[in-house]
Write a protein that binds this DNA or RNA. Structure first.
Lengths: 335, 335
DNA sequence: CTGTTAGCGCTTTCAC
DNA sequence: GTGAAAGCGCTAACAG
């Protein structure tokens, strides 16, 4: 288990060149005779030499690492974003330092201790709001910060257009002829943030269609299937229950579907359900939803990071398109 | 964006002590007068000083980092394991370097380039088999390797007992009275590995119950809902279709359920379905399954890693318990 | 094109 | 208990 690591000095000696030349040759810096470079490389190869990234970082002043800060890694959306991010970062030989901040305590601790200090050249926060206090702490890192899968503070970001996604879902329902459509609104319970575009789209699409808004049809909860199930239960208690349900996410929608199923109601005959995300399992439930390209968001964010590291100018806001996917959970209201 | 980083030297100077003393004081190494230590700490605090991990690593010879190598980060199981791992590692101030190896090409590249070389003190591979060639490459890192969520080569590991999990699922079905039970076997298409305990349990439980094994009832595919759906379709084409289905995972089971639903068959009235995992969404589908503590596996693996780093003796095989969770997708066969 | 020489910012003997 | 000094392994001027 102990490392018999070869050093650059050793390589240089064996190749019969100076330290500097060896160094240049190995990261093909300019100013090395091709022959020399090949010789050095051959020796390095043969000794299976690898530079010590720590020594290199120290000398160079940059780390070659990026931090990804992510809540709920065990949820598809987050995992997929990270997967996308990692792939482009790795292609650029940038290492990923992972920080999972699940609950509020984690968050607090993260911003308090800033474990990433001095360890990365940039940090990307995945789909969670960064408050002013947090922002101030993050600034202490004095590195680039970007957001993936959602907007955070005023960092550059890549995400879908939530309003449009919501609009696509709502329009579908409205075009089918539904007028009593409920919204299962999801929020992050640890954060107070302005209503998301997904919520705005609900009201707006209804108004535009000339359908009065009934506040009783709006249920707010945390993201999650059980929460959606509970909210749906409440909705069923109404004297005039909805004929359609618009959920902020597929998981919430799947929860609602369970409640409907258990209540003996049929989907879509009795109630239509639409979600947002196009979670892989949504297809297995035949759930109509709004597809969002998640891995892509991760990849684009990765490219944004690389751009920043290269000191390029980057877009401060990149939106990826969403698309309605009609499956078997929606139909015209029964009359 | 430029780092106005304070150095140890600066702290030492301001505290009026030598470099060595400052260093000792800050990582409370023995041999520093309490008063001195407090003074140094105060100064460091006030300057919000943080050691340069790279310089520290370089001088000390260890990295304080662990690599997590994971396929399919966008799948619940993997994300949850990583989340568990990360939490205990972070508590121990060990950083996590993430390597996502999705497909075969990724894997090959990972083992070829060994991007983690010289960057970590240990690596944990999450639920994927490591062949002999791979193993040889990994050994080049000359660091500890452990496996989480499954056995790999002969590295120490933490996982469930697959045979037992399968046994629990099958026993349930058999006790309900099913005799025509199908198995939706899932395998990693990129790997050739011996049949998993989940498959062995199928045969064994049937044999023990005196039920003849009908090979036509076994369908093998990759892990995944769509695959499960397709396999179920094939099963329905049989002249004597099964009355119960045992799937290697919940995702596969959910796929099978969709096929059944679309075929107009009712669950569990016409066909019972049982999975393995207790995926969060399984509850939303009322799927009977075998629960496995996934985050826990991650955490225990994390502790194993920490033990190894401390040079403790560690268990070479840790099994966490699984448990049948009966929901509404299973019932006695209709007669 | 190539070698020498300083550091990069810490940790760690080894004396005091 | 404390400080001086020698690295850790590499990169980046700077001279040749």
């Amino acid at each position: 288990m102990s490392a018999p690591n070869v050093t650059l000095a050793e390589v240089a000696r064996r190749a019969g060149v100076g330290l500097a030349t060896a160094s240049r040759a190995l990261r093909d810096a300019p100013g090395v005779a091709p022959a020399t470079r090949d010789r050095v490389r051959a020796v390095a190869e043969q000794l299976s030499f690898v530079v010590s990234p720590d020594a290199s970082s120290l000398a160079r002043g940059t780390t070659g690492r990026v931090a990804i800060v992510v809540p709920h890694l065990d949820r598809w959306f987050f995992g997929a974003i990270v997967a996308g991010l990692e792939s482009v970062l790795r292609d650029a030989d940038v290492d990923v330092l992972l920080y999972h901040v699940g609950d509020l305590a984690d968050r607090r601790r993260f911003f308090e201790q800033l474990p990433a200090r001095r360890k990365v050249d940039a940090v990307v926060v995945v789909a969670f709001p960064v408050g002013d206090r947090d922002r101030a702490r993050l600034d202490l890192l004095s590195v680039h910060v970007v957001a993936a899968g959602g907007q955070s503070a005023d960092y550059p970001y890549v995400s879908i257009d939530d309003f449009q996604a919501g609009w696509q879902a709502m329009s579908h329902l409205i075009h089918l002829g539904h007028t009593r459509v409920a919204m299962l609104e999801a929020i992050d319970p640890d954060q107070s943030v302005p209503p998301s575009g997904r919520s705005l789209a609900y009201e707006r699409s209804l108004i535009d269609a000339g359908i009065p808004i009934d506040r009783a049809l709006i249920r707010t909860s945390a993201w999650g299937g059980e929460e959606g199930a509970a909210s749906m239960g409440a909705l069923l208690g109404l004297s005039a229950p909805p004929t359609a349900v618009y959920a902020h996410s597929d998981e919430v929608a799947l929860g609602a579907m369970r409640t409907l199923r258990r209540a003996g109601l049929r989907i879509p005959d009795d109630v239509s359900v639409v979600g947002i995300d196009d979670h892989p399992l949504a297809a297995l439930a035949d759930l109509t939803t709004v597809h969002q390209p998640v891995q892509l968001q991760g990849r684009l964010t990765g490219e944004m990071v690389l751009g920043l590291l290269r000191d390029d100018d980057v877009e401060v806001a990149v939106h990826v398109p969403t698309e309605l996917v009609v499956r078997a959970s929606t139909a015209p209201p029964r009359r």
